[in-house]
Structures are given as structure tokens and as C-alpha cells.
Design a protein around this nucleic acid. Sequence first.
RNA 1: GUGAAUGUAGCUCAGUUGGUUAGAGCACCAGAUUGUGGUUCUGGGGGUCGCGGGUUCGAGUCCCGUCUUUCACCCCA
Length: 455
Amino acid sequence: MEKPSLPKGTRDFGPQTMARRNFILQSIRSVFQKFGFQPLETPAMENLSTLTGKYGDEGDQLLFKILDSGDFLKNVDATKLETRNSKLVANDISEKGLRYDLTVPFARYVVMNRHEITLPFKRYQIQPVWRADRPQKGRYREFYQCDADVVGTDSIICEAEIILMIKEVMALLRIADYTIKINHRGVLNGIAETMNATGKEADLFVAIDKLEKIGEENVRKELSEKGFTTQQQDKLFELLKTPGSPEQKLNTLLNAFATSASGKKGIDDLKTAFDLLGHYQSSSDHVDFDVALARGLSYYTGCIFEVKINNVAIGSVSGGGRYDNLTQAFGSKEKLSGVGISFGIDRIYDAMDELNLFPVEANASSKVLICHFDDNTLQHGLALLTALRQKGISSEVYPEVSKLKKQLDYANKKSIPFTIVIGEEELKTEVFAVKNMTTGEQQKWSTEQIIQHLA
RNA sequence: GUGAAUGUAGCUCAGUUGGUUAGAGCACCAGAUUGUGGUUCUGGGGGUCGCGGGUUCGAGUCCCGUCUUUCACCCCA
């Protein structure tokens, strides 16, 4: 008999883990709903044609493909098969794949249901996604994304609200030390134009993004290898090192981008976003204009976001940005601009775990355990149990007759905060011993008093 | 996908140049305590040493393969 095991990069979530995951999930969901987003779910699998070509060559490699049913090799071209090149035959034997993110299925949904969608359309979506990546810490092959997107408006209000939502989620999770990095694709293009590197954006941006991780020296080394002159590099780092507050940086860069239309547009959008935060009576605390942030290059066209929890060795816990042409990839003639944010709850979990940030409430299951001594007291406990449940107090009874010690141990292990002991004496007086498992204090209460105190 | 490291009880780890029956702490179960837990004491259960081959009189220890996890690259939540 083979030992059971899980596919690489996937996990089971036990009750304790689920309680904490739900705590995170519910925090995020409540914020999304508060900001007017409506739920959407899409299938785990999509047609491969929906998924391929949307994430760049790298992304296509990471797609999980689903083998066609039936006799899928029957009609495959024999000469193709003989090449033994799996890439050549992949499309002939697989027409479906597991979704890689939630944004592309959302875009597909919008195009397919355009007639019944009122713009601007705000949806949130919380579902697992799959990537055939090599697993590492904080990187899984199956993980959940929590996305909120708005399509059908260019308004920077949406960008500002994304920042507000991130702040609210972090506050609910009691994560205090985090940074929302924000940049703009236009700023990146402006940099490329200003340093005379148009046409080589891809190499440039990939190198820029590594600045924080590998430092200026190594970035310069990489740029030299890619054929950037020292002069270009000097100009680049002059821009990247623009000093001051976000506002000061924006002003300095605006001057630097005098000849770059997209650079100016980028600065403009970012300025608007920062201004709007003020109108929302919010601050730019935690928000950092990071000129070196370059993510999601294959489809973001406007603002780019990334959220890092500080002092944990885990990648970004959230990312997002504005995209102009996602629906065009599905043949939509109308140009729909969208902007969205995605929280990775698996990484948030890992970070909170490492920082010991889970509140005790996130562990509790039942609030009350009813303990007893024999069949008679057990049976009478059921009436009390029903009374408690009718008042919405989540409670359970120890389902078999056993020693009190064992029942109290059970309550401890499940972090049940109150126990009620029912014995012959309690049956006569109808006053029960209610024990606070944290303090050890014990009170004598009637059913009404119990409900009053615990509801 | 490329390159590297790791794997001994549920968990964290010991285990000498290859040599009897592989250990500890924590956790678990039982008792001390027939209506009061998280402390203490006593006892107990639990390991095909990741899996499969090989070398050897003999392998947890050496070699090869494989899987898992981790790290770097790539990319990303």
C-alpha cells in the first residue's frame, strides 16, 4: 500500500488553520463589500485559448494544462508526435487549463456578459489559482487570490480607493508595519525615454525592479551586460535616487520628464491619487512612491501597486494596477480600462504567523462546552444546549460520559472559553456552574443569567 | 525550466572512523486525583531512519536514482 501524499506545492488546511484563514478572508471580504464590490466566481478551468498569451512567455510555461478526455492521441499528427516535442503537441491533446489568476477570467466574463453589465463594474472574487511554479517559502502551486477590480472608468478615484482598501484590510488584520509601494507604468516609460533607451524597456524594467534586492552595483552590472551605456545608467540612477517626500519626488520627476508625454501622464495620475487621499480624509501614511517598482509588465499600463509586510522574509502580499487593453485581448471593440488589487491570503497567513499576529478570537471554535457526569445529566444538558444555540451562542456538549478532567481537557484543546458543569445538584437547583477557562473563575448562574452573560 | 542543499517518533533535534536491541525534550495516552483543566510526580504507547536500488560479513551512517521541503536564478501572491 502506497503512503498517501499531496501534489507538490499543495496543502491541506486543518481546523485551526482554517479558522485563521477565515479570519483573514472575512476581513478582506468585508472591506471589499463596504467599498461597493460585488462577488463573482468563475470556473477553476478555462479554455486554454483564454489563458495563453496573457501572461507573457513565462506565464504560459506556468499554466497547468488539463489532458483532454477520451482517446486524445488518436487524431494527433504522427509526424508531430515523432518529434517528441511536448510543446508541439500540447495544443492537440489539451484544450483546457487551470486558471492562473483571477483578472483574466474576469476580463473574459466582462466581454461575454457585456450586455448586462452596468459600467463602471466593480467585482470582487476570492478563489484559488494554480501555477506550475517551483514551490518555495511563500510560493505555492495552489493558492488563493482575493481580487477587487473596477472596469469601465479611467477615474483615479479607483486607485485612491484601492489604497484605502489596503489600509482598512491591514488595520482589521492588525498589521501595523507595512508599505504600499506605488508607481506608474508611464513613469517607467518616462525613465526609458529620458535615458534614451526606448525599445529596450523589458530588459531595463526587469533590472530596475531588482534594485532593492541586489543593489545598485549588481543592477549596473546587469544593465551593462544588456548593452546599456554608463551614461544611460548614470541618468537612470539620478532619476531613481530622486530625494524627498512623494510630493517632492513627483515634482522633480515632472521636470525631468519635460519631453516625455507618458512620463508626464504617469506623474499626473500619481499626483491625482495622492491628492484624492487627502479629500478622503486619509493620509499618505504607509504609501511610498517607489520609482523602482516594476511589476506585472505584461499587462499593466497605468498605476502599479505592491504591498510588503515589513520585517518578514515573504514576498509581496498584495499587488495590482491599471490595465487598458485586457478586454481587447478577447476581441472587445470598446476600450475598457480597469484597475484592480489582489491580496494573497496564503502569504498574509505566513507573515501573520511569523509575526504572531493572530488574535485568540481567530482560534476559538465553540464558546461553550457543556460537561456532565452520567447519562441523566448528559440528557438534561441537551435542553440547556438547545437554549444556548437558540440565542446564537455557538456551543457543544461532550458527547459521551467520561471523566470531568477529560471534558475540561477537550475544552482547553479547542480553546473553548467557557464550560458549564451539570451534575445532580445543578439539576435540582437549575443553577449551573459556569467556568471561565481562562481565569479559572466559576459562577453559579441560571439559564437566563448564562444567556445574558454569554450572548 | 536551470543550479544547489535537506529528509531520523506527531514536533524540534542527537546518533562517534560504517559495528549489538536507534535516543532526548516537547506532545500524546493512563494513573496519582470515583464532581473541576492548563502545575507536579509515576508509568506507557509510538520509528520499514523519505522511498527504491547498490557497495559491504554488517548501512541511519558510503554510492546511485527518485520524491519532498528549502535556497538561488526566472517570475510572482
